[in-house]
Amino acid sequence: MLLDQLASVLLNTEFYVAIVRMTTPLLLAAMGSILAERAGVVTFSMEAMMLMGTIGGIIGSGVTNNVWMGVLLAMIFGMIIGLIYAVVAVSIGSHQIVTSVGLNLGALGLSAVLYALTFTRGGEIIQTVIKVPSLPFWKVPLLGDIPFLGPVFFNHLPMVYLGYLIVPLVWFILFKTTWGLKVRAVGEHPHAADTVGISVAKVRYAALLFAGALNGLSGAYISIGMLNSYMENMTAGRGFIAYTAIVFGKWQPINVALGTLLFGAADALQLRVLALNIGIPYQFLVMFPYVVTMIALISVVGRASWPAASGLPFKREEG
């Protein structure tokens, strides 16, 4: 009986579609932040960038009536948070996690205020969210018609395809380009990097702007793509989950992608198991990936994996 029900979940194509759909925001966010993490900046502020992305998507799409302007504005909003974070954490050198906590709180407030500013006047809603244009589904010709694989992989929102491409792209940037080498040098030994003429601040700024753009995109995927509406705090901690996935994947793009897949699959499974009403309480399923990560931290990740200069502001020694 139970096995039958489980089988009905696992054999259903919809389940695998949901996995891809739930993994994408985490994947985009984690891939965006991995460079900044590698450059030695703790991206605990991903939640803030994603939140601004959700509101940017809604506003851009709603005001211009063009969904792609929404995507653009989401990326810009994300980059603004990235820039603010860079100024405070890189230039001033403030404690990165404390700054992030502040920014996360601020983005929560700012997104709600911006939403109210754009769509209400004196408490009256002038434009309902339902009218905001949302992202179209793109079906890949030919590939989309393959049974099972077609609907699971090739009939999605555009960001999903970007998700497929971003993993090899980030891997390539990180390990095969000069810029990637600079990023890793800055994250492992900023003083040595500085000595050979790499501008630590410049690399970190660039990495954070990249992180802001992709996290904003991820936010837009949630607001004008996946859920197609707006509510307060709609990322619901996905920024922290993506951050966890980065550590879980030991800062290796491919492992990180697998980490986001784990969290995405758990997300997809929760909803289906809830409908089935089998013995495992819903809350324990939500808990499951965190427990797995905790075990992974204890057994595999350990201490050595952290980029050496992670979280440390860089100050050139005087004299």
């Binding site: 502040g102 920014l103 709180l105 601020g106 929560l108 407030g109 700012l110 709600a112 205020v113 109210a116």
Partner: peptide
Amino acid sequence: AVVYIIQS
């Protein structure tokens, strides 16, 4: 929500 911005 303005309060969150002040705190932030």
